[in-house]
Protein backbone atom coordinates (compact mmCIF):
# COMPACT_ATOMS: atom_id res chain seq x y z
CA UNK A 1 0.00 0.00 0.00
CA UNK A 2 2.87 2.35 0.69
CA UNK A 3 4.06 1.96 -2.89
CA UNK A 4 0.56 2.70 -4.17
CA UNK A 5 0.37 5.85 -2.04
CA UNK A 6 3.72 7.03 -3.41
CA UNK A 7 2.59 6.40 -6.99
CA UNK A 8 -0.62 8.35 -6.34
CA UNK A 9 1.35 11.16 -4.69
CA UNK A 10 3.71 11.59 -7.63
CA UNK A 11 0.83 11.35 -10.09
CA UNK A 12 -0.97 14.19 -8.28
CA UNK A 13 2.24 16.20 -8.02
CA UNK A 14 2.71 15.87 -11.77
CA UNK A 15 -0.84 17.10 -12.41
CA UNK A 16 -0.32 19.99 -9.99
CA UNK A 17 2.92 21.01 -11.67
CA UNK A 18 1.56 20.78 -15.21
CA UNK A 19 -1.81 22.34 -14.40
CA UNK A 20 -0.36 25.23 -12.42
CA UNK A 21 2.20 26.00 -15.13
CA UNK A 22 -0.54 25.87 -17.75
CA UNK A 23 -2.69 28.14 -15.58
CA UNK A 24 -0.08 30.88 -15.38
CA UNK A 25 1.36 30.73 -18.89
CA UNK A 26 -1.62 30.00 -21.16
CA UNK A 27 -2.38 32.79 -23.60
CA UNK A 28 -6.12 32.50 -23.35
CA UNK A 29 -7.69 32.98 -19.95
CA UNK A 30 -10.24 30.20 -20.49
CA UNK A 31 -7.39 27.74 -21.06
CA UNK A 32 -5.69 29.07 -17.93
CA UNK A 33 -8.91 28.34 -16.06
CA UNK A 34 -8.85 24.74 -17.33
CA UNK A 35 -5.32 24.39 -15.95
CA UNK A 36 -6.48 25.80 -12.63
CA UNK A 37 -9.35 23.29 -12.46
CA UNK A 38 -6.95 20.39 -13.12
CA UNK A 39 -4.75 21.64 -10.30
CA UNK A 40 -7.75 21.92 -7.96
CA UNK A 41 -8.71 18.31 -8.70
CA UNK A 42 -5.17 17.15 -7.98
CA UNK A 43 -5.12 19.04 -4.67
CA UNK A 44 -8.40 17.33 -3.75
CA UNK A 45 -6.67 14.02 -4.44
CA UNK A 46 -3.86 15.09 -2.13
CA UNK A 47 -6.41 15.73 0.62
CA UNK A 48 -7.79 12.22 0.11
CA UNK A 49 -4.26 10.85 0.45
CA UNK A 50 -3.97 12.77 3.71
CA UNK A 51 -7.08 10.99 5.05
CA UNK A 52 -9.12 14.19 5.06
CA UNK A 53 -12.11 13.25 2.88
CA UNK A 54 -14.33 16.06 4.14
CA UNK A 55 -11.78 18.69 3.13
CA UNK A 56 -11.37 16.95 -0.24
CA UNK A 57 -15.08 17.11 -0.99
CA UNK A 58 -15.29 20.69 0.22
CA UNK A 59 -12.43 21.45 -2.16
CA UNK A 60 -14.46 19.96 -5.01
CA UNK A 61 -17.66 21.75 -3.95
CA UNK A 62 -16.22 25.19 -3.20
CA UNK A 63 -13.29 25.50 -5.58
CA UNK A 64 -14.23 23.35 -8.56
CA UNK A 65 -17.94 24.04 -8.16
CA UNK A 66 -18.13 27.67 -7.17
CA UNK A 67 -14.87 29.57 -7.50
CA UNK A 68 -14.08 28.35 -11.00
CA UNK A 69 -17.58 29.32 -12.15
CA UNK A 70 -17.00 32.77 -10.61
CA UNK A 71 -13.73 33.11 -12.54
CA UNK A 72 -15.48 32.02 -15.73
CA UNK A 73 -18.12 34.70 -15.11
CA UNK A 74 -15.35 37.25 -14.57
CA UNK A 75 -13.80 36.28 -17.92
CA UNK A 76 -17.18 36.59 -19.64
CA UNK A 77 -18.17 39.89 -18.03
CA UNK A 78 -14.84 41.50 -18.74
CA UNK A 79 -15.48 41.09 -22.50
CA UNK A 80 -11.88 40.24 -23.19
CA UNK A 81 -10.68 40.61 -26.79
CA UNK A 82 -10.81 37.42 -28.82
CA UNK A 83 -7.66 35.45 -29.35
CA UNK A 84 -5.98 35.89 -26.03
CA UNK A 85 -5.45 38.75 -23.64
CA UNK A 86 -1.88 38.12 -22.68
CA UNK A 87 -0.18 38.35 -26.05
CA UNK A 88 1.50 41.73 -25.69
CA UNK A 89 5.25 41.47 -25.25
CA UNK A 90 6.68 42.02 -21.80
CA UNK A 91 9.43 44.37 -20.81
CA UNK A 92 12.73 42.67 -19.94
CA UNK A 93 12.37 43.92 -16.37
CA UNK A 94 9.20 41.89 -16.05
CA UNK A 95 11.00 38.70 -17.12
CA UNK A 96 13.62 39.29 -14.44
CA UNK A 97 11.02 40.05 -11.76
CA UNK A 98 8.94 37.00 -12.58
CA UNK A 99 11.91 34.63 -12.56
CA UNK A 100 13.20 36.15 -9.32
CA UNK A 101 9.81 35.73 -7.65
CA UNK A 102 9.63 32.14 -8.91
CA UNK A 103 13.09 31.12 -7.75
CA UNK A 104 13.68 33.04 -4.53
CA UNK A 105 10.92 31.52 -2.37
CA UNK A 106 11.26 28.12 -4.03
CA UNK A 107 14.95 27.80 -3.24
CA UNK A 108 14.85 29.43 0.19
CA UNK A 109 11.85 27.52 1.50
CA UNK A 110 12.81 24.17 0.00
CA UNK A 111 16.28 24.56 1.52
CA UNK A 112 14.70 25.15 4.91
CA UNK A 113 12.27 22.24 4.53
CA UNK A 114 14.96 19.78 3.46
CA UNK A 115 17.60 21.02 5.86
CA UNK A 116 15.32 20.96 8.90
CA UNK A 117 12.77 18.26 8.09
CA UNK A 118 9.63 18.47 10.22
CA UNK A 119 8.81 15.58 12.51
CA UNK A 120 6.46 13.41 10.53
CA UNK A 121 4.40 10.33 11.06
CA UNK A 122 4.19 7.75 8.32
CA UNK A 123 0.40 7.58 8.21
CA UNK A 124 -1.97 10.51 8.63
CA UNK A 125 -4.21 10.62 11.68
CA UNK A 126 -7.81 9.75 10.92
CA UNK A 127 -10.51 12.02 12.21
CA UNK A 128 -14.23 11.27 11.78
CA UNK A 129 -16.41 14.02 10.38
CA UNK A 130 -18.35 14.01 13.64
CA UNK A 131 -15.27 15.23 15.54
CA UNK A 132 -14.86 18.04 13.01
CA UNK A 133 -18.46 19.11 13.50
CA UNK A 134 -18.10 19.06 17.27
CA UNK A 135 -14.93 21.15 17.08
CA UNK A 136 -16.71 23.61 14.81
CA UNK A 137 -19.55 23.98 17.30
CA UNK A 138 -17.29 23.95 20.35
CA UNK A 139 -13.89 25.62 20.55
CA UNK A 140 -13.89 27.11 17.05
CA UNK A 141 -17.42 28.47 16.92
CA UNK A 142 -16.22 32.09 16.87
CA UNK A 143 -14.20 31.48 13.70
CA UNK A 144 -17.23 29.74 12.18
CA UNK A 145 -19.46 32.74 12.87
CA UNK A 146 -16.84 35.21 11.65
CA UNK A 147 -16.42 33.41 8.34
CA UNK A 148 -20.20 33.58 7.84
CA UNK A 149 -20.12 37.32 8.46
CA UNK A 150 -17.15 37.71 6.10
CA UNK A 151 -19.00 35.84 3.34
CA UNK A 152 -22.13 37.94 3.87
CA UNK A 153 -20.17 41.20 3.78
CA UNK A 154 -18.30 40.10 0.65
CA UNK A 155 -21.55 39.22 -1.11
CA UNK A 156 -23.23 42.47 -0.12
CA UNK A 157 -20.14 44.43 -1.12
CA UNK A 158 -19.98 42.71 -4.50
CA UNK A 159 -23.61 43.50 -5.20
CA UNK A 160 -23.09 47.11 -4.11
CA UNK A 161 -19.97 47.51 -6.28
CA UNK A 162 -21.45 46.03 -9.43
CA UNK A 163 -24.87 47.65 -9.03
CA UNK A 164 -25.69 50.08 -11.78
CA UNK A 165 -27.75 53.06 -10.75
CA UNK A 166 -30.97 53.29 -12.69
CA UNK A 167 -31.42 56.41 -14.80
CA UNK A 168 -27.73 57.26 -14.81
CA UNK A 169 -27.00 56.63 -18.51
Amino acid sequence: MAILAKVAFFFYTLIILAGAWWAVTAQSLVRALVGLIATLFAVAGMYLLLAAPLVAFMQLLIYVGAVSVLILLAIMLARAPAGGEEQDPRQPRQYVNALLVLCAPAFALSWVIIKHPPVSRLTPSELPAEALGKALMGPYSLAFELISVALLVAMAGAVLLAFEKRGKK
Partner: peptide
Protein backbone atom coordinates in the same frame (compact mmCIF):
# COMPACT_ATOMS: atom_id res chain seq x y z
CA UNK B 1 5.38 24.27 -5.95
CA UNK B 2 1.91 25.80 -5.86
CA UNK B 3 3.13 28.86 -3.94
CA UNK B 4 6.09 29.52 -6.26
CA UNK B 5 4.13 29.10 -9.49
CA UNK B 6 1.32 31.25 -8.11
CA UNK B 7 3.72 34.06 -7.25
CA UNK B 8 5.30 33.78 -10.69
CA UNK B 9 1.87 34.11 -12.27
CA UNK B 10 0.96 37.07 -10.08
CA UNK B 11 3.97 38.99 -11.43
CA UNK B 12 3.73 37.67 -14.98
CA UNK B 13 0.04 38.18 -15.72
CA UNK B 14 -1.23 41.44 -17.08
CA UNK B 15 -4.96 41.05 -16.65
CA UNK B 16 -6.84 41.06 -13.36
CA UNK B 17 -8.47 37.68 -14.03
Amino acid sequence: ILLAIGMYGLVWRKSLV
